Simulated scan of single mutants.
Amino acid sequence: MLGPSRFQAAAYEIVAIGSSAGGVKALLAVLGALPADFPVPLVVVQHLDPRHDTILADILDRRSRLRIKLAEAGDVIAPGGVYLAPPDHHLLANPGGKLSLSTVDRVKFVRPSADLLFESVAVVYGPSALACVLTGTGSDGATGAGVVKSRGGTVVAEDPETAEFKGMPQAVAKAVSVDLVLPLDDIADALVGLVEGTRTL
């Protein structure tokens, strides 16, 4: 197995992922394929039933070489850590790598909102932000992806034609000039290549 040396000059500082319907399967595919030495943190919004606690972090953690947890207010993100928005809370990135949670109004009928996560990541990380939109209904993530692009960041989307639910990736593709549109099985490799600087857009 290759050591961390291949990632010495990571081209990005954070990866933000948004998903909804069909997202558990998609997250398992992406997070399960990332290497243990992935050098940047990942922050994830998956739309969940707000009336129930979730075991999604535990399910993903068992199937991934990365450390996956439900995000808590005040968490300081660490390389190779995956921070999942808890049910009914928006997840936001802040300067200094600190996360915060919010229960402000729903955005496009959802909380957590990929839009708000992407916007916060874009403001803090600018060109070092990498946003990824996976399967889902609705258009959450499209507005936030536009902010990521406007700050010089990169947007990757699952191919709507192969996504289990094409709404979210299709909305992003219509809203912004997506840098890479890929089938689900190619996304993990693309994230690795982008972060390690071996893949160009």
Rank of each mutant, 00 (worst) to 15 (best):
F7V: 13
F7T: 13
A10V: 15
Y12T: 08
I14K: 12
I14H: 11
S19K: 04
S20D: 07
A21C: 11
A21H: 08
G22S: 01
G22V: 02
V24M: 00
A26H: 01
L28Y: 05
A29D: 04
A29W: 00
V30S: 02
V30C: 00
L31S: 00
G32Q: 01
L34A: 08
P35W: 14
P35A: 10
A36N: 12
D37C: 14
D37M: 09
P39H: 14
V45A: 07
L48K: 01
L48N: 01
D49Y: 07
P50N: 03
H52D: 11
D53V: 03
T54K: 03
T54N: 00
T54C: 02
I55F: 13
L56N: 01
A57L: 10
L60V: 04
D61F: 08
R63Y: 07
R65M: 10
R67T: 14
I68F: 02
A71P: 09
G74S: 08
G74K: 05
G74D: 08
G74Y: 02
V76F: 08
V76E: 15
A78V: 12
P79S: 14
P79M: 12
G80K: 09
V82P: 12
Y83M: 11
Y83D: 03
H89F: 15
H89V: 06
H90L: 10
L91F: 11
L92E: 07
A93L: 15
G96R: 14
G96N: 13
K98D: 04
L99N: 10
S100H: 12
S100I: 05
R106D: 14
K108Y: 08
F109Y: 14
F109H: 11
V110N: 01
R111H: 06
R111V: 08
S113I: 05
D115P: 02
L117H: 10
F118E: 01
E119P: 11
S120M: 12
S120E: 10
V121R: 08
P127E: 11
S128D: 15
A129W: 10
A129Y: 07
A131C: 10
C132M: 13
G136P: 01
G136I: 00
G138I: 00
A142P: 10
A142G: 06
A142L: 07
G144D: 00
V147L: 11
K149M: 06
K149L: 03
S150T: 12
T154C: 08
V155Y: 00
V155T: 06
E161K: 12
T162S: 02
T162A: 03
A163V: 05
F165P: 00
K166H: 14
M168W: 02
M168L: 09
V172I: 10
A173S: 14
A173N: 09
A175Y: 10
A175Q: 11
A175G: 03
S177N: 13
V178C: 06
D179V: 03
D179K: 06
D179W: 03
L180T: 04
V181C: 13
P183H: 09
P183W: 04
P183G: 10
I187L: 05
I187R: 00
L191I: 13
L194F: 13
L194W: 12
G197N: 11
T198H: 04
R199L: 06
L201H: 07
